[in-house]
């Protein structure tokens, strides 16, 4: 059976996010939430590919109970099945521990062809989790994706960016893709999709179902230590330009600087 697994994260909707002073982690309950934008594009790519391959799309999210909303949205947007990875033991996991949990979820789901991740989450900005999951599972990973041309004969054909160079690549399955918002346009969800999504079951797995020990995951198992957090103070130098020649001079200098 062909199967695509898509990973999505619930992130704050607003820029106004409170930090937990004790753990130096985001207080996720303090903010309005949304599905991480890149992750929605990863889902869209999986759903679009599914139309030509007939694969099952499984959506997975790790987070508190509120991440159920993320998974309902995936069902509305075309996922066939949704799994929530939720446990107090997972709380405070850094990217390393998160990727351990996600990799365990992949093993439990069973056979798969493609893993889809959003390139980066807008709250952490690390872009680490997808590549780490691929490493845990020992499968190829495709970063800096430009486009996917198709899947056939156990291989994925795609184009990736390497600086200014575009590389045409073939990757054996299974493999992991890191998808950005420029890789595919989102289709607008429908009311009938929403109604269907409300009737579906969202499976919920904790550390027992995943065969993980609480010592392996969560805040205290995470090798990352946030020592301090602060809001960067930007000091911008501002100059009023009196006329067009002054503007032209600034642009000329900037272009010369860029061409150096």
């Amino acid at each position: 059976m062909k199967r695509y697994i898509v990973f999505l994260k619930q992130v704050p909707l607003s820029t106004k996010v409170e930090m937990d002073e004790q753990t130096k982690t985001l207080k996720r309950s303090s903010a309005l939430c949304q599905t991480n934008p890149d992750d929605l594009h990863a889902l869209q790519m999986a759903v679009t590919l599914k139309r030509s391959t007939g694969a099952e799309v499984v959506a997975v999210s790790m987070g508190p109970a509120s991440a159920d909303a993320v998974l309902r949205e995936t069902l509305q947007r075309g996922a066939d099945r949704a799994v929530l990875l939720s446990s107090r033991a997972f709380a405070g996991s850094d990217t390393w521990c998160t990727s351990l949990v996600l990799a365990a979820a992949v093993r439990r789901i069973g056979e798969y062809d493609l893993l889809f991740f959003g390139r980066m989450a807008i709250d952490g900005d690390t872009a680490q989790v997808g590549p780490e999951v691929a490493a845990h599972l020992d499968i190829p990973q495709l970063t800096w994706l430009a486009s996917v041309d198709g899947v056939a004969d156990g291989r994925l054909r795609a184009v990736k960016l390497a600086g200014r160079v575009r590389q045409q690549v073939e990757v054996s399955l299974p493999c992991a893709l890191m998808v950005g918002r420029e890789n595919c346009a989102l289709e607008a969800p429908t009311l009938s999709g929403w109604r269907w999504a409300q009737q579906q079951e969202v499976e919920c797995w904790g550390e027992d179902e995943l065969g993980l020990s609480p010592d392996e995951v969560g805040l205290y198992a995470s090798p990352t230590r946030v020592v301090t957090t602060e809001v960067p103070q930007r000091e911008k130098e501002m100059v009023w330009l009196a006329d067009a020649p002054a503007l032209a001079a600034v642009l000329r200098d900037a272009m010369q600087f860029q061409n150096k």
Binding site: E187, A188, P189, T190, L191, S192, R195
Partner: peptide, 8 residues
Amino acid sequence: DIDDLGIA
């Protein structure tokens, strides 16, 4: 077709 109209 409001039920199946894409809501962006």
